[in-house]
């Protein structure tokens, strides 16, 4: 009998630097599987963010560019405009995408740039030690909201998928999570759909993945999953917000 489970060709064999229980690793694997299944490794260029995934390129086996904080969508625009035949994706955290890079993501999406964004929403700035992000939950304690996020001072967390779905142009906007096998399957389907739309040259595609950061949440991996389920998912509702079919 042959192997039934192996490392995707698009994924390297490097040991990741991610913390135990961090969902970045799962999301990397899903992307690699999709790239293998679509047979696009040789024409894919990834754009890494500044955040915990800044070293994402160490875990993939295809071309990669490293952006400045928040600017990945502008870099992806540059690549895709001069080389529409390449498959391009940005991989971005919530501080990167929803704070410093909000301008770049909104305009890239609104222009309908034909690349894909994988948006990892873990409700904090992971890399810099757990500061408050635009996606931090009400009353959630972080290192810069030690008494909990006060919505009267800093507003409610930004629902990026809904915000982008309010624009007319972007074609595929979806939110999933990876906190259980059932959800992981759905997340993979969404990522594959997103890359497929890009391959067909159809539209901009955006997959938000509600994720965990046990280290900065001060939780065990299991507690983090439970907290995601109980606190984040009721606010960040899962599902397709927009498909090219609903837009057309």
């Amino acid at each position: 009998m042959g192997k039934t489970f192996q490392r995707p060709e698009a994924l390297s064999d490097a040991v990741t630097h991610y913390c135990p229980g961090c969902t970045h690793g799962i999301i990397h694997r899903l992307i690699a599987e999709v790239i293998d299944e679509l047979g696009i490794r040789g024409r894919t260029v990834g754009v890494a963010p500044v955040g915990c995934a800044v070293l994402a390129y160490n875990y993939f086996t295809f071309d990669f560019q490293e952006a400045a904080h928040g600017r990945a969508p502008a870099m992806a625009t540059g690549i895709k405009r001069v080389r529409p035949d390449l498959m391009v994706f940005t991989y971005q955290g919530d501080g990167d995408l929803a704070s410093i890079g909000m301008g770049e993501i909104v305009h890239a999406a609104n222009r309908g740039e034909k690349f894909t964004t994988i948006f990892v929403n873990n409700a904090v700035y992971g890399m810099t030690g757990g500061q408050m992000a635009p996606t931090t939950m009400p009353n959630q304690r972080t290192t810069t909201s030690p008494f909990g996020r006060r919505v009267d001072e800093v507003g409610m967390p930004i629902k990026v998928a809904e915000l982008l779905a309010a624009l007319q142009t972007p074609g595929y906007i979806v939110r999933q999570t990876v906190i259980s096998p059932k959800y992981i399957k759905r997340a993979k389907r969404a990522i594959k759909q997103a890359f497929t739309y890009q391959k067909e040259g159809r539209c901009y595609s955006f997959v938000e993945v509600v994720s965990t950061c046990p280290t900065n949440w001060g939780m065990t991996p299991m507690e983090a999953i439970q907290w995601t389920q109980d606190t984040m998912l009721p606010y960040y509702e899962l599902g397709e917000l927009k498909t090219p079919e609903t837009t057309d």
Binding site: V47, A67, R71, A74, M75, G78, R81, V82, G103
Partner: peptide, 23 residues
């Protein structure tokens, strides 16, 4: 290829992306 970017910040990274892709 002509594109008007949303800011000079974004433009500088469009330039970076395209240059890094070999154009």
């Amino acid at each position: 290829v002509f594109l008007q970017g949303e800011s000079e910040v974004a433009v500088s990274y469009m330039i970076f992306g395209a240059a890094a892709a070999g154009a």
